[in-house]
């Protein structure tokens, strides 16, 4: 034991010495900089690396994307493209009857918008209910709780392409599900080539892939609710349903809002796992907005990067508006905010 603690002491001392040495080297230039730049200047200095990465990989591409959306033609490089102003937006938004995508200039865009809207409502709604239920169950003192938590979180670790492939093998005509159904004497179904079942599969698979992450956020929220409150409710003779609606749910509000915002953004952006699973089909039944952008910008024969850029700008704008609305609503309802 003493030998181990000796090694520990020596390692600790060596680490401390090296940190001290490194600090000794960077201390003089930082002191000089602080003298020159002042306190606020130092804050900017430390933020600079992050801002630089944000600028290069997010801000600049956004600006370039916006620039692309104002251009037309099939050329890939911006200087080779023709400035068309808001024509791409006009093309995307022109419809004689907005309830019938077929009447729109870009009917595929509107089909994708409609599919995405339905997908978002169904998938986000179902996923939040399931994630909350999972979190509530995992929060109980059940046997092998850590194992079950890992089981529910595991799909989150998988690449979306892997998720898509796994479920394609399960759901295809001669897949695992049909094999099992056949063993029980049930007629196999063409899950991925039926318009309704393909959409259901897209919703189900995306829930399976992401629910664990949201359940984990909600579980953290549940664990942050003081046990005393539940004991006080128990002393008051509160029924379990009332405890859930009057105590758990209001206090979980901020976490639910985070989950709602994240799940909504992710649902609007849904692409890879569904693309691998159904390819957007059958027909356009699982064509979502990101796949539309990808196909119009890169995959179709007559590619139109300007139109794809305009569609992505519109999608981004819708997401920003939705998020702001949610945050505004959340701020009004947050018990902690309201208590201030």
């Amino acid at each position: 034991m003493s030998a181990i603690s000796d090694i520990g002491d020596k390692t600790g001392a060596a680490l401390a010495a090296s940190v001290k040495w490194a600090a000794g080297i960077i201390d003089p230039p930082l002191r000089w900089l602080q003298k020159k730049a002042g306190f606020n200047g130092m804050a900017a200095f430390f933020l600079a690396p992050n801002m630089l990465i944000f600028g290069i990989f997010i801000l600049v591409p956004m600006v370039i994307n916006f620039a692309y959306s104002m251009t037309g033609g099939g050329a890939l490089f911006l200087p080779d493209r023709v400035f068309v102003g808001g024509d791409q937006y006009g093309r995307l938004l022109t419809c004689s009857d907005y309830s019938r995508p077929i009447t729109c200039t870009e009917d595929q865009f509107w089909i994708a918008v409609r599919n995405t809207a339905i997908f978002v409502v169904v998938q986000v709604g179902l996923m939040i209910v399931l994630a909350l239920t999972t979190a509530l169950v995992l929060n109980k003192s059940l046997r092998a709780r850590s194992f079950w938590r890992a089981v529910f979180f595991f799909p989150v670790l998988l690449s979306p392409v892997v998720v898509g492939l796994i479920w394609r093998w399960i759901l295809q005509r001669q897949g695992l599900l049909n094999y099992i159904l056949f063993q029980f004497g049930i007629e196999p179904t063409v899950w991925l080539t039926d318009r309704f079942w393909a959409f259901v599969a897209a919703v189900g698979v995306s829930i399976w892939a992401h629910m664990g992450f949201y359940a984990l956020i909600l579980l953290a929220g549940l664990q942050a609710i003081p046990k005393d409150l539940y004991e006080a409710a128990e002393m008051d003779g509160t029924r379990p349903a009332r405890v859930f609606w009057r105590i758990t749910l209001p206090l979980l509000g901020p976490n639910l809002l985070v989950v709602l915002v994240l799940a909504l953004i992710r649902a609007v952006q849904i692409f890879d796992e569904v693309f691998v699973l159904t390819g957007g089909g059958p027909g356009t039944s699982t064509l979502f907005i990101t796949q539309y952008i990808y196909e119009i910008g890169f995959a179709s024969v007559l590619r139109n990067p300007g139109l794809a850029a305009a569609a992505s700008i519109l999608m981004g704008a819708v997401l920003v508006v939705l998020t702001l609305i949610q945050l505004g609503v959340g701020r009004r309802k947050d018990p902690k905010e309201a208590a201030k």
Partner: peptide, 20 residues
């Protein structure tokens, strides 16, 4: 007997007031 049916009331160290 369940806590609610004992006719007792408890004051907790943390007060356990419902914050919302």
């Amino acid at each position: 007997t369940p806590a609610a049916d004992r006719g007792l009331a408890m004051v907790f160290q943390s007060y356990a007031l419902y914050p919302h």
